[in-house]
Design a protein around this nucleic acid. Sequence first.
DNA 1: GTACTAAGGCACCTC
DNA 2: GCCTTAGTAC
Length: 777
Amino acid sequence: MDYLNLLNPQQRQAVTAPPGQTLVLAGPGSGKTRVLTQRIAYLIEAMGVRPYNILAVTFTNKAARAMGERVDALLGGARARGVWLGTFHSICARVLRTEANTPGLLPFQSNFVIFDADDQQNLVKRALRENNIDDKINKPAAIHARISEAKNNLVAPDDLPVRSYRDEIVVKTFKRYNELLQQNNAVDFDDLMLWTVKLFEQHPEVTEKYARRFEYVLVDEFQDTNLVQYSLLKLVSSYHHNLFVVGDEDQSIYRWRGADYRNVLRFEQDYPACQKILLEQNYRSTQTVLDAARSVIDQNANRTPKSLFTDHGRGEKINLHEAVDDHAEASYVVDTIQGQLRKGKPGGDFAVMYRTNAQSRLLEEAFLRAGLPYRLVGAQRFYGRREVKDMIAYLRLVHNPDDELSLQRIIAVPPRKIGEKSVTALQFAAQKAGRTMGSLLRELAEKADESPLWKELGHGAGPIFDFAVIFNGWLKVKAELPLPALFDKIVNDIGYQAYIDDNTEEGKDRWGNVDELRRLAYEYQDKGLVDFLENLALVSDQDTLPEQVNSPTLLTLHAAKGLEFAQVFIVGLDDGILPHSRSRDDPEEMAEERRLFYVGITRAKERLYLVRAGQRSTYGNPEYQLASQFLDDIPEDLLTRSGGEFPSGGPARLKSWDDTGDYSPAYGRRSSSRSPAQGNGANRSSKSSWGQTSYDWSSPTPARSTVSRSKPPVPAPDPEQKFRAGQRVRHASWGEGLVISSRILDGEETVDVAFESVGIKRLIASLAKLEVVKQGL
DNA sequence: GTACTAAGGCACCTC
DNA sequence: GCCTTAGTAC
Ligand SMILES: Nc1ncnc2c1ncn2[C@@H]1O[C@H](COP(=O)(O)OP(=O)(O)OP(=O)(O)O)[C@@H](O)[C@H]1O
């Protein structure tokens, strides 16, 4: 149990806590995630718990993967296999897939699809239109938010309070929306958890099956769980009652989607016997960063004050830079990073964080102009592309022919002489028959003009029949064909390449994206279509962050949760951006804005740069900006100021920028808005799993694209690493072996070695006592 | 039925 | 400055 030596006494107490309920409450960088990981290792090794009996919930799929690898590394070997490890969504999807096989338990079949955000919105729109409600006045997004909120709080449509006409609309739409989901054999994100909870509540025997199995349940980022998730945890631990949760109320940043940090209080109330453990040493940041963080968060009321110390020393002061406008802000960031790179800092050290995605544009442009590679967190970049969504719709339709939304999306793509009229006719026929369009198409394909549908469709019958035949063909082969082959068959049958690749730059990009999706499908050929589609639906932005790219990272503050970087820039520290203008009137939301800032600050290990702009353009016209009020809370002695001119001695609050009236931007506004690198996902990016778009350009020249895609950038060796691929090493008990790879995982060098005696093992360098025998290549 | 263009709406964070 | 939608010409 050497690995326990990697912990401080408080952490060790948590890791080795006796069965029962444990609540680890601690500030950022105190090793909560590390504790959770080691707890799993400890349970397996010291307590003899079978991996099969452990359930661990993480915030992202990526975190789950990392945790599994890490446990393997701690224990040496694939020992974590069998642990149920995943996000709430993926765990629930798995439960539902299994249980939907038992007839009568759930209102959908086991091959249900998960509707993504777009689909959900579409469905709301449809529900609105069916009820003759104007979707211009009643925004689908707003209605959907209400529906989602209700689902996250276990509130059924009929239990919603109806105080206004608008409430009535919500209830009506809510009901229809649910019906539509059912008709499509689909669920939305919230349903995954909601149906699991309902299933458990209504069928104690099912609950018992899982609750008996999960002897130990562990949860990371507990402060951002919502009510449904909390209920789920209680249910799933209702047999053994061993619940281990870690979190930090001050880092709760998802209130707006139902998360409730008061679950921490609830936990203490529901389990009065729980052991509460506080971790106080921060291993991430300098004292200066911690002091700034603390001065910001201390302004929030109703929180448990947590002390946090570090032995990293004071470190550098925080740079507070005031740029003249948003362009200058971006250049400041890029210039500063370039300066640090010249000093030999690796690109991967840097992160630039912002409140809203829209802020990334100018930053990207600045990086491109400087010829600096960067990686951008955001799945939309790839999965949101039309050609990718189209292909996914095809796959989804083949998987679940009742998925009407997907059918509608692709029935006329590429154009096949099926127009609006024909689609309406088909839809009408389906409605009349009480069946889905998909099932009608299958019948049409079999019976051709003998099907009653043929006549009903009139002129449109021919083209629809042609499509039905192709479609039916896929359904017939989908069981035998491996996923990539199915993918290719669809692409060929519909002539997709000819449709999207018109030999222009954009066309090639589009085709590149399809190709990329195909590559992902290839990775899933063993697991199959179901798993593939499920993962497509549940990939989070953070999951798309490629690990092996040594470039600065651009990401939202939300996406930064749980991560850490040596040097962090937080841009847009202006009033109305952070805190966001929409939070201004609500104290709870303002408190969350503050937490968001706090999360951002505490991602920094060594240096922190806070940046704002005196003027920025929202959409076209520039506006003067006031400094964020949060800046006022950081003591002056922690700061080094640069840039803008401040009223003498005063805090960073500028009333106006009258001296900048004649400012002319150094770069000028470019006439063509579309930089060559924008709007093309695959082409000049290197990707690995899950459309990890890295945008790792060494130059903005499009010609380099293909090169960089086929050859992922080689990670620069980290100075801390002792081992390199190719070295021969000796282990005390396993003898000699060859280093396959080495990387830093959770702050520890983790080495994969192929031993002659025992095969490939993953080891932690500081524990394994490896000796280098020969330097190798 | 399709393909192109203009205009208006719109940007907070996300599974 | 980007995307969706409506309108129009072929
Ligand atoms: N006992 C320890 N010794 C050395 N390093 C540690 C120790 N515990 C944690 N660390 C390191 O500190 C950093 C933060 O750890 P971790 O991510 O687990 O913290 P956390 O509490 O989950 O942070 P956050 O709440 O900000 O997400 C990591 O780099 C981790 O490797």
